[in-house]
Write a protein that binds this DNA or RNA. Sequence first.
DNA 1: GAGGTGTGCTACACATATTGTAGCGACCGG
DNA 2: CCGGTCGCTACAATATGTGTAGCACACCTC
Lengths: 108, 108
Amino acid sequence: MARKTVSQSVRGSTTGRPIMVLLDILGQRWTLRILWELRDAPLSFRALRQRCDQVSPTVLNDRLKTLRELDLVQREDGTGYRLSQAGEELESTLLALNHWAEKHWAGR
Amino acid sequence: MARKTVSQSVRGSTTGRPIMVLLDILGQRWTLRILWELRDAPLSFRALRQRCDQVSPTVLNDRLKTLRELDLVQREDGTGYRLSQAGEELESTLLALNHWAEKHWAGR
DNA sequence: GAGGTGTGCTACACATATTGTAGCGACCGG
DNA sequence: CCGGTCGCTACAATATGTGTAGCACACCTC
């Protein structure tokens, strides 16, 4: 398996530039969506799955594994998965994305 | 083909919420990267391809088609592909993403 | 007007990633 | 011990992406 720490290769992009790694990870299906769904409350594996159009558990687990390795998401016994501190910072840019989408695609 | 206007289905997510469509589009491989590479200058098809680790022209063309349909990217004869006004607004959130990545993953 | 260069883009066989369903083992309450 | 939940794995089917070759067009220069 690839995709562990930032300095390692992720799907082939080995430039070492953090942004490249990030773009590569976020460019995997469901990754952005997962972060989005965790935006305001921790969710259990199954709840998270439900919110993400019943994404297959295979992929969900894979993504969560990656996100945990990158320290964006944590698992707490009892509550389930939640954003880490770093994850919450990233989240704010997703909120900006949402803002943009709502504004720009209001009519369509 | 799916993936045309915001109100239409994109890879199955038919909630109609703009953010969902956006997350789904950006969650396709290379889409984010393409936007990123266009950040400060227009690029020709081939130049863009070169910057994106020689992504296959099939995919590049597909992404550009989508991005043009969504009015994020435009093609100008002579200069090549460039961000639209809307694209540039979106870009600013990518810059924030970059900032976050540099800050958070400085050491790794 | 033949050859060279550049462009955007398509075709297609091959590889990888994702999906959908089934189900396991661990836990908990009754 | 039974019926519910939980996180998660296995695996075959399908969708998506890759890599190479090459086409049609335009603009040069000779």
